[in-house]
Computed example of a mutant assay.
Amino acid sequence: MRYRFRCEYLGSAFYGWQEQNEAGKTKFVTVQSALEEAFSVALRAPIRIVGSGRTDTGVHARGQCVHFDFDGELDPFKTERSINGLTKRLIRIRDLQACAPDFHARYDAVSRYYQYTIFTRPVALMRDFGWECGSLSLDLGAMEREAQAFLGEHDFIDFCIPRNDGKSTLCTLTEFRLERVNDWTCMFHIRGNRFLHRQVRAMVGTLFDVGRGRYPEGTVKTIFEKNFKGERTWAPPQGLVLQDVEYADY
Protein backbone atom coordinates (compact mmCIF):
# COMPACT_ATOMS: atom_id res chain seq x y z
CA MET A 1 0.00 0.00 0.00
CA ARG A 2 1.18 3.53 -0.71
CA TYR A 3 1.18 6.25 1.96
CA ARG A 4 1.98 9.95 1.90
CA PHE A 5 2.68 12.66 4.45
CA ARG A 6 3.89 16.23 4.89
CA CYS A 7 7.03 17.08 6.78
CA GLU A 8 8.96 20.07 8.01
CA TYR A 9 12.59 20.12 8.96
CA LEU A 10 15.46 22.29 10.12
CA GLY A 11 17.66 22.41 7.05
CA SER A 12 20.80 23.53 8.90
CA ALA A 13 20.90 20.17 10.70
CA PHE A 14 21.26 18.11 7.50
CA TYR A 15 23.33 17.82 4.34
CA GLY A 16 20.33 18.55 2.15
CA TRP A 17 17.41 16.29 1.31
CA GLN A 18 18.81 13.53 -0.87
CA GLU A 19 20.65 10.55 0.55
CA GLN A 20 24.38 10.56 -0.18
CA ASN A 21 26.50 7.44 -0.20
CA GLU A 22 29.34 7.95 -2.65
CA ALA A 23 32.01 5.29 -2.88
CA GLY A 24 34.96 5.99 -0.64
CA LYS A 25 33.24 8.91 1.10
CA THR A 26 31.52 9.32 4.43
CA LYS A 27 27.76 8.90 4.32
CA PHE A 28 26.30 12.21 5.51
CA VAL A 29 23.02 12.50 7.37
CA THR A 30 20.38 13.89 5.04
CA VAL A 31 16.67 14.43 5.61
CA GLN A 32 15.87 11.46 3.40
CA SER A 33 18.25 9.11 5.20
CA ALA A 34 17.06 10.26 8.65
CA LEU A 35 13.42 9.64 7.71
CA GLU A 36 14.13 6.28 6.13
CA GLU A 37 15.98 5.16 9.24
CA ALA A 38 13.14 6.33 11.50
CA PHE A 39 10.44 4.63 9.41
CA SER A 40 12.46 1.41 9.19
CA VAL A 41 12.69 1.33 12.99
CA ALA A 42 9.03 2.24 13.56
CA LEU A 43 7.64 -0.19 10.97
CA ARG A 44 10.32 -2.88 11.42
CA ALA A 45 10.94 -3.11 7.68
CA PRO A 46 13.19 -1.36 5.17
CA ILE A 47 11.43 1.76 3.88
CA ARG A 48 12.36 3.90 0.89
CA ILE A 49 10.79 7.34 0.68
CA VAL A 50 10.30 9.67 -2.28
CA GLY A 51 10.10 13.44 -1.80
CA SER A 52 8.51 16.09 -3.99
CA GLY A 53 11.97 17.50 -4.68
CA ARG A 54 15.44 18.12 -3.31
CA THR A 55 16.41 20.91 -0.98
CA ASP A 56 20.02 22.02 -0.58
CA THR A 57 22.08 21.93 2.58
CA GLY A 58 20.79 24.60 4.95
CA VAL A 59 17.42 25.05 3.23
CA HIS A 60 14.39 24.54 5.50
CA ALA A 61 10.95 23.10 4.75
CA ARG A 62 7.46 23.37 6.19
CA GLY A 63 5.49 21.57 3.51
CA GLN A 64 7.65 18.94 1.88
CA CYS A 65 5.51 16.07 0.58
CA VAL A 66 6.69 12.46 0.70
CA HIS A 67 5.34 9.06 -0.31
CA PHE A 68 6.43 5.51 0.50
CA ASP A 69 5.22 1.93 0.05
CA PHE A 70 4.59 -0.47 2.94
CA ASP A 71 3.28 -4.01 2.69
CA GLY A 72 1.05 -3.94 5.71
CA GLU A 73 -1.36 -1.86 7.70
CA LEU A 74 -0.25 0.96 9.95
CA ASP A 75 -1.90 3.31 12.41
CA PRO A 76 -1.22 6.83 11.04
CA PHE A 77 -1.49 8.51 14.46
CA LYS A 78 0.85 6.08 16.22
CA THR A 79 3.29 6.06 13.32
CA GLU A 80 3.46 9.86 13.27
CA ARG A 81 4.21 9.89 17.01
CA SER A 82 6.92 7.27 16.58
CA ILE A 83 8.62 9.07 13.71
CA ASN A 84 8.50 12.42 15.47
CA GLY A 85 10.03 10.82 18.55
CA LEU A 86 12.85 9.25 16.55
CA THR A 87 13.93 12.30 14.58
CA LYS A 88 15.23 14.33 17.55
CA ARG A 89 12.94 17.33 17.03
CA LEU A 90 14.74 18.18 13.80
CA ILE A 91 11.99 16.73 11.59
CA ARG A 92 8.24 16.68 12.15
CA ILE A 93 5.77 14.77 9.98
CA ARG A 94 2.00 15.27 9.76
CA ASP A 95 -1.06 14.28 7.70
CA LEU A 96 0.11 10.68 7.23
CA GLN A 97 -2.51 8.86 5.18
CA ALA A 98 -3.05 6.08 2.67
CA CYS A 99 -3.22 7.27 -0.93
CA ALA A 100 -3.74 5.98 -4.45
CA PRO A 101 -1.12 3.39 -5.48
CA ASP A 102 -0.05 5.55 -8.41
CA PHE A 103 0.34 8.79 -6.43
CA HIS A 104 3.83 10.27 -6.86
CA ALA A 105 5.09 13.05 -4.58
CA ARG A 106 7.30 14.51 -7.28
CA TYR A 107 5.54 13.94 -10.59
CA ASP A 108 1.99 14.70 -9.39
CA ALA A 109 2.91 18.08 -7.90
CA VAL A 110 1.07 20.98 -9.52
CA SER A 111 3.27 23.73 -8.08
CA ARG A 112 5.90 24.48 -5.44
CA TYR A 113 5.79 27.48 -3.14
CA TYR A 114 8.94 28.94 -1.54
CA GLN A 115 9.51 31.83 0.83
CA TYR A 116 12.77 33.73 1.15
CA THR A 117 13.34 36.10 4.10
CA ILE A 118 15.75 39.06 4.18
CA PHE A 119 16.60 41.15 7.25
CA THR A 120 17.63 44.72 6.51
CA ARG A 121 19.08 45.37 9.97
CA PRO A 122 21.44 43.33 12.17
CA VAL A 123 19.58 40.50 13.95
CA ALA A 124 20.58 37.79 16.40
CA LEU A 125 17.51 35.70 17.20
CA MET A 126 16.38 35.01 13.64
CA ARG A 127 19.62 35.04 11.68
CA ASP A 128 19.42 31.27 11.14
CA PHE A 129 16.13 31.72 9.27
CA GLY A 130 16.89 34.63 6.97
CA TRP A 131 19.58 36.58 5.14
CA GLU A 132 20.93 39.21 7.51
CA CYS A 133 22.15 42.09 5.35
CA GLY A 134 23.22 44.19 8.33
CA SER A 135 22.89 47.91 7.81
CA LEU A 136 23.12 47.71 4.03
CA SER A 137 20.52 49.91 2.37
CA LEU A 138 18.32 48.07 -0.15
CA ASP A 139 15.93 49.63 -2.65
CA LEU A 140 13.01 47.28 -2.04
CA GLY A 141 10.93 49.00 -4.71
CA ALA A 142 13.53 48.23 -7.37
CA MET A 143 13.76 44.63 -6.16
CA GLU A 144 9.98 44.27 -6.28
CA ARG A 145 9.77 45.63 -9.81
CA GLU A 146 12.68 43.53 -11.02
CA ALA A 147 11.11 40.35 -9.61
CA GLN A 148 8.27 40.64 -12.12
CA ALA A 149 10.72 39.81 -14.92
CA PHE A 150 10.84 36.22 -13.63
CA LEU A 151 7.12 35.61 -14.16
CA GLY A 152 5.99 33.36 -16.98
CA GLU A 153 7.87 30.60 -18.75
CA HIS A 154 11.61 31.07 -19.16
CA ASP A 155 14.74 29.00 -19.63
CA PHE A 156 16.42 29.32 -16.22
CA ILE A 157 19.71 27.72 -17.28
CA ASP A 158 21.55 30.90 -16.19
CA PHE A 159 19.77 30.96 -12.81
CA CYS A 160 20.82 27.55 -11.53
CA ILE A 161 23.66 25.08 -11.24
CA PRO A 162 22.93 22.67 -14.12
CA ARG A 163 22.86 18.97 -13.22
CA ASN A 164 23.72 17.99 -16.82
CA ASP A 165 21.09 15.27 -16.73
CA GLY A 166 19.52 16.13 -20.07
CA LYS A 167 16.30 17.42 -18.49
CA SER A 168 14.62 20.65 -19.53
CA THR A 169 15.55 23.88 -17.77
CA LEU A 170 12.25 25.55 -18.66
CA CYS A 171 10.19 26.63 -15.66
CA THR A 172 6.99 28.62 -15.29
CA LEU A 173 6.72 31.05 -12.37
CA THR A 174 3.24 32.28 -11.44
CA GLU A 175 4.15 34.39 -8.40
CA PHE A 176 7.18 36.42 -7.31
CA ARG A 177 5.89 38.86 -4.73
CA LEU A 178 7.69 40.97 -2.11
CA GLU A 179 6.00 41.34 1.27
CA ARG A 180 7.21 43.98 3.71
CA VAL A 181 6.70 42.16 7.01
CA ASN A 182 7.95 45.06 9.15
CA ASP A 183 10.49 47.89 9.00
CA TRP A 184 13.41 45.47 8.91
CA THR A 185 12.05 42.24 7.40
CA CYS A 186 10.93 41.49 3.88
CA MET A 187 9.84 38.18 2.43
CA PHE A 188 9.68 36.98 -1.15
CA HIS A 189 6.81 34.64 -2.06
CA ILE A 190 7.80 32.50 -5.06
CA ARG A 191 5.58 29.96 -6.77
CA GLY A 192 6.15 27.89 -9.88
CA ASN A 193 5.59 24.53 -11.51
CA ARG A 194 9.18 23.42 -10.86
CA PHE A 195 12.55 24.74 -9.71
CA LEU A 196 16.10 23.87 -10.67
CA HIS A 197 19.16 23.33 -8.50
CA ARG A 198 19.74 26.56 -6.50
CA GLN A 199 17.41 28.50 -8.78
CA VAL A 200 15.64 30.45 -6.03
CA ARG A 201 18.92 31.44 -4.42
CA ALA A 202 20.25 32.65 -7.78
CA MET A 203 17.13 34.71 -8.45
CA VAL A 204 17.08 36.32 -4.99
CA GLY A 205 20.81 37.03 -5.24
CA THR A 206 20.25 38.90 -8.50
CA LEU A 207 17.45 40.96 -6.93
CA PHE A 208 19.78 41.72 -4.03
CA ASP A 209 22.40 43.04 -6.47
CA VAL A 210 19.77 45.30 -8.05
CA GLY A 211 18.49 46.44 -4.67
CA ARG A 212 21.92 47.51 -3.44
CA GLY A 213 22.64 49.36 -6.68
CA ARG A 214 25.31 47.03 -8.01
CA TYR A 215 23.34 46.45 -11.21
CA PRO A 216 20.45 48.41 -12.78
CA GLU A 217 16.85 47.40 -13.20
CA GLY A 218 16.53 45.27 -16.30
CA THR A 219 19.37 42.96 -15.26
CA VAL A 220 17.13 39.88 -15.14
CA LYS A 221 16.09 40.43 -18.76
CA THR A 222 19.74 40.94 -19.72
CA ILE A 223 20.66 37.61 -18.13
CA PHE A 224 17.79 35.79 -19.88
CA GLU A 225 19.00 37.26 -23.17
CA LYS A 226 22.57 36.10 -22.38
CA ASN A 227 23.94 39.62 -22.65
CA PHE A 228 25.06 39.92 -19.02
CA LYS A 229 28.72 40.04 -18.05
CA GLY A 230 29.83 40.26 -14.44
CA GLU A 231 29.84 38.48 -11.13
CA ARG A 232 26.60 37.70 -9.37
CA THR A 233 25.57 37.07 -5.77
CA TRP A 234 24.09 33.81 -4.53
CA ALA A 235 21.64 34.20 -1.66
CA PRO A 236 22.58 32.05 1.37
CA PRO A 237 20.49 28.92 2.04
CA GLN A 238 19.15 29.67 5.53
CA GLY A 239 16.68 32.28 4.28
CA LEU A 240 14.89 29.77 2.05
CA VAL A 241 11.90 27.65 3.08
CA LEU A 242 9.95 25.17 0.98
CA GLN A 243 6.58 26.30 2.28
CA ASP A 244 4.17 24.09 0.35
CA VAL A 245 3.80 21.64 -2.51
CA GLU A 246 0.39 21.69 -4.14
CA TYR A 247 -1.54 18.74 -5.61
CA ALA A 248 -4.95 18.31 -7.15
CA ASP A 249 -6.18 16.25 -4.19
CA TYR A 250 -3.81 16.83 -1.25
Rank of each mutant, 00 (worst) to 15 (best):
S82K: 10
S111V: 10
R201K: 12
W184E: 10
R121T: 15
P236V: 01
L170C: 13
T120R: 13
I190V: 14
G24Q: 09
V210Y: 00
V220H: 12
A34F: 07
Q199W: 01
T172W: 07
R89H: 11
R121W: 06
V245C: 11
L138Y: 10
I157A: 14
L207T: 00
F224I: 02
V50P: 00
E144C: 12
K229E: 13
I157N: 06
M1R: 08
R44G: 07
G72D: 04
V181A: 09
C160W: 02
R89P: 01
E73G: 15
H60Y: 07
R44W: 08
L151A: 09
F77P: 01
L125V: 15
Q243S: 13
W17P: 00
I118S: 09
D249K: 12
S135M: 14
P237F: 11
P76W: 06
V210H: 00
T172M: 11
R127D: 10
E153W: 01
Q18C: 02
I93Y: 00
A100E: 05
N164A: 14
S137G: 06
R163Y: 04
V241N: 07
W184G: 05
G63R: 01
D69E: 14
C99G: 06
Q97H: 10
F224E: 02
F224P: 01
F129S: 14
N182L: 03
D155H: 03
D128P: 02
T206D: 04
L74S: 05
Y114M: 08
C65K: 03
G211M: 05
V59R: 01
L242H: 01
L151N: 03
G230F: 11
A142Y: 04
S40I: 12
G24T: 06
L140E: 05
K27D: 09
V123S: 13
N227Q: 14
V29G: 08
I93G: 02
